[in-house]
């Protein structure tokens, strides 16, 4: 699904990622954990194509293609989805409009006709119920005046409708109370599939209580310093990050 090889990335001439190696197979859930400033967000941004980063070395291959060569919207149409830590508010555009525009962009990319209006509504309303959202949400402006929990739920709703192959969840648990966290986690779990992979970027282990990762990687100072199974997250919760921060990159 995704293969990151010796990736080095600069922001304003400062090296943020210092040689990342990561292999993600279809159906796997990987958690990227690490302290603030470790490069977690940079990694999720570089995968989704945000501007302002300079790749100085290494490669990212997604489904056999060079991901870094693709414009952000092409990555999205090819199945890469970033659930934002801070979803943007867009007054003046309704949620349902954005969903329709996004879904039809994917369909066009794959040479398919526009989605039928009735089928679309049925699809969207089903997903809305799944995420325990009010249908009125669909007709409100994108994220405008939404609470933190509502915004994150909305990200997962988009994910559920667009059915990506590689889902990157950037600090999805931040700003969520326990009830919202459960709903979001259930939404993510319901999307688990043999051909869909997840990368969860998170500072805390909390989210991993509800979405069990197959692999946990610890990012510190721009390098993956330790990798392990789900149990590594628990160890981190107990010990913190400091014992790992000075380690050399895991090989």
């Amino acid at each position: 699904m995704l293969s990151i090889k010796n990736l080095t990335v600069n922001v304003n001439d400062k090296q943020i990622l210092k040689g990342i190696n990561l292999e993600i197979k279809p159906g796997e859930i990987h958690a990227i954990m690490g302290p603030n400033g470790s490069g977690k967000s940079t990694l999720s941004h570089i995968l989704s194509g945000k501007a302002g980063y300079t790749v100085t070395g290494g490669s990212v291959t997604y489904q056999g293609k060079d991901l870094l060569e693709m414009a952000p919207e092409i990555r999205a149409r090819e199945g890469v989805f970033l659930a934002f830590q801070y979803p943007v508010e867009i007054p003046g555009v309704s949620n349902i409009y954005l969903l329709k525009a996004a879904l039809n962009s994917i369909r066009k990319h794959h040479g398919q006709p526009e989605v039928d209006a009735m089928d679309f509504l049925t699809l969207v309303k089903g997903k809305v119920r799944l995420l325990e959202m009010d249908e009125k949400f669909l007709y409100r402006a994108v994220n405008e005046g939404f609470s933190g929990g509502e915004k994150k739920r909305n990200e997962i709703l988009q994910m559920a409708i667009l059915e990506p192959k590689l889902c990157i969840l950037d600090e999805t648990d931040s700003g969520l109370d326990i009830d919202a966290l459960k709903v979001v986690a259930e939404g993510v779990n319901s999307l688990r599939a043999a051909d869909r992979s997840f990368v969860m970027v998170t500072h805390y282990q909390r989210l991993l209580d509800y979405i069990k990762p197959d692999f946990v990687h610890v990012l510190a100072n721009g390098q993956i310093v330790k990798s392990g199974g789900a149990e590594l997250a628990l160890e981190l919760e107990e010990k913190g990050y400091s014992w790992l921060e000075d380690s050399k990159a895991a090989v």
Binding site: A51, A71, E73, R77, V88, I90, L98
Partner: peptide
């Protein structure tokens, strides 16, 4: 960028 990341 948000819209680009939503395929647009």
């Amino acid at each position: 960028f948000y819209l680009q990341s939503r395929c647009i």
